[in-house]
Every structure is written in C-alpha cells, then in structure tokens.
Amino acid sequence: MKKLIVIILCLISFRSQAQYQIITTVVKKVIKAIDLKVQRMQNETIWLQNAQKTIENELSKFRLTEISNWSEKQKSLYDDYYQELWKVKSTIAYYQRIKELAANQLAMVSEYQRAWKLFQSDQHFKPDEIIQMQRVYVGLLDASAKNLDQIMLVVNPGKTQMTDQQRLEAINQAGDRLEENYSDLKQYNNQNMILSLHRAGDLNEIQTIKSYYGLH
C-alpha cells in the first residue's frame, strides 16, 4: 500500500511538473512575440520622429499661395508633393500614441516577470496554484499580444483603408484594451499578494511577506 501511495504521489508530481513546463514554454513564446512587436513599433516611431523635422522643414518651403510666377504644371507638381507631406505629418500624430503603448507593454511584461519570480518562491502557494497562476498569465499576455497585432494592422496603410481619424480611433480602442490587460495583471498580482498575507501565521510573518513583496 505504501509503495502504491508513493507511486501515485510521484505520478501526480510528474504530471504537475509537465504541466508547469508546458505553460512556462507557452509564456516564453508569448513574451518573445510581444518583444518583437514592441521592437517593431519602437523602430517605426523613432524613424517617424526623425522624419518629422525634415517634413516640417519641407512644408515650410512650399506655401503655394505665396508663390508667384509659377506655371500651372509646377504648381500642380508641388501641390501633390505638399499634400503627400501633410499625409505623413498627420500619420506621426498617432505614432506618438503607439510610442506610449509600446512603453506600457514593456512595463506589463516587466511587472509579470517581477511578480512571477516572487510567487514561485512564496511557500504559501501550492504547486497547483502556481500552475494556475501561469495559466492566468498566459491568458493576459496572449490578449495583450493580440491587441498589439490589431494596432500593427491598423497602422499599416497597405492592409487597412481608413481615414487618419478612423485609424487613430482604432489605435486608441486597441490601446485601451492593452491598458486594461495591464490593469488586470496588476490587480491579479495584488490579489495573490493579499492571499499570501492571509495565509501568514503571525505578525512577524506578515511583516516578512510585506517586505518580500515591497508592500507598505
């Protein structure tokens, strides 16, 4: 009987470890995907920031209403160029929003990594609870990755036909969902910290947990 119990416990432990490894692998893949998307967003934002000054300088050169002695052909040529510059300039406006969202996403991943490292070492949580935490994190991080995909789709003029205003609204909507993902993650972390405090045996242990998680 004792041998049977030992075998059963070993099987349960093995199964828990296998589940943990699978979920951890999924999380790593999601975080890698997020990092790549954020890097792409940041690169595009940096390029547009550098381009902004050049565009504004170019725009100041072509004030068609102030130009005289030009043929209609010249005016038409530079009018097209002028309009194209304005389109790019208006695009820069919503890339500022993207820059903010990229920073927000990096903060979310950093918050997950910080809290997850602490929870794994917290003896107040059982192995199956740790696995469940990872499942929740997978859901939150995957949702944020999908919202990043939506943003990248919107900012690609070749894939979506929208006015600049419609594009900015779509970015803001996806951005709001990203911020909600981040808020949900922080709330979930706080709930787990509170649960750990409730499981403390005495006041000294409570103070130790508070110090461990940086709570005041």
Score class of each variant (00 low, 15 high):
135 R>H: 08
150 Q>E: 11
34 I>Y: 06
102 A>E: 05
128 D>M: 14
139 G>Q: 09
46 I>G: 09
189 N>H: 12
175 G>H: 08
61 K>M: 11
215 L>D: 01
87 K>H: 14
59 L>I: 00
115 A>I: 05
52 Q>I: 10
140 L>M: 08
69 N>H: 03
167 R>V: 07
147 N>R: 10
144 S>Q: 09
162 M>F: 10
35 D>C: 04
55 I>V: 14
132 Q>H: 09
69 N>D: 06
95 Y>V: 00
149 D>I: 09
51 A>R: 12
170 A>L: 06
77 L>H: 07
79 D>Y: 02
159 K>N: 11
95 Y>A: 05
63 R>Q: 14
53 K>A: 10
157 P>T: 15
1 M>V: 11
70 W>R: 01
5 I>H: 15
72 E>I: 05
18 A>M: 09
39 Q>C: 11
7 I>F: 15
159 K>W: 14
145 A>E: 09
98 I>V: 13
215 L>A: 04
203 L>R: 02
183 S>V: 04
66 E>N: 07
35 D>W: 03
113 Q>W: 07
136 V>Q: 06
88 V>Q: 07
40 R>I: 01
211 S>T: 06
169 E>S: 13
130 I>S: 03
140 L>W: 04
160 T>R: 11
36 L>G: 08
201 G>Y: 05
104 N>W: 00
15 R>F: 15
68 S>L: 04
126 K>C: 09
144 S>L: 05
